[in-house]
Write a protein that binds this DNA or RNA. Structure first.
Lengths: 108, 108
DNA sequence: TTAATACGCAACTAATTGGTTGCTAAATTA
DNA sequence: TAATTTAGCAACCAATTAGTTGCGTATTAA
């Protein structure tokens, strides 16, 4: 099994999954599998597989209600990616504004 | 062909490539293919393939000198990932994350 | 009670991935 | 000049991925 951060990176490395994830975030409500697949050109089963990947990365949490399964989004695992990126931020060659932001986070 | 941000996400989604990338960053000098492969347990050809992926994502730039090929790292493409994450930052929930950490320590 | 809906599971496929070995060519060193 | 080092290329392989179709089952609606 891969480590957590790899799971999250791989989950969002796929453009379709990023789209599903985004759809869930802007919906600001739990969406059923069918509701999601209606928005995409791939089959419901294809969506289910993507959802499972997102779920395993902790980006989606599923709640069953009757015959439906509602997908709740959770953006928190993205914090790990942010933390990973943070280290390399110091090597970006950038404008003074961004350097300022960096120094602010270093010296709050 | 995939779009740029997908290329960058996929490049760093692989743990070996993250390690190679990290090795290049902390080396703060260009490393040859052999110098890199000496640090890993996979073959030189394996490393070459990973380097190519990183190169196509813009995270590595190669400079030939004699029979050697030196890999220069470039962290700038990571800015795109940061920008992508930025949008979802507003949905992060600090208390839930703390609860998650708490549960992790309770159930390791 | 029957029909429709929402979904999971399994099997299958084609393409991609991460890795290997074997070979060749160019550049450097002895 | 001969041997060694650095590296690319091609072929191959096993595992994974992104997607499909077909079918069975539970839940809801008519």
């Amino acid at each position: 099994m891969q480590d957590k951060i790899t799971q999250v990176f791989k989950a969002i490395a796929d453009p379709t999954r990023r789209d599903i994830f985004h759809a869930l975030v802007i919906a600001s409500a739990a969406l059923s599998i069918s509701q999601i697949s209606n928005q995409f050109d791939i089959t419901r089963q294809g969506i289910t597989k993507h959802i499972k990947t997102l779920e395993e990365a902790g980006l989606v949490h599923i709640e069953s209600k009757g015959r439906e399964r509602f997908c709740n989004v959770n953006t928190n695992p993205l914090k790990e990616l942010n933390k990973w990126l943070k280290f390399y931020e110091q090597f970006w060659d950038d404008s003074l504004e961004d350097l300022g932001n960096y120094l602010d986070t270093k010296n709050p």
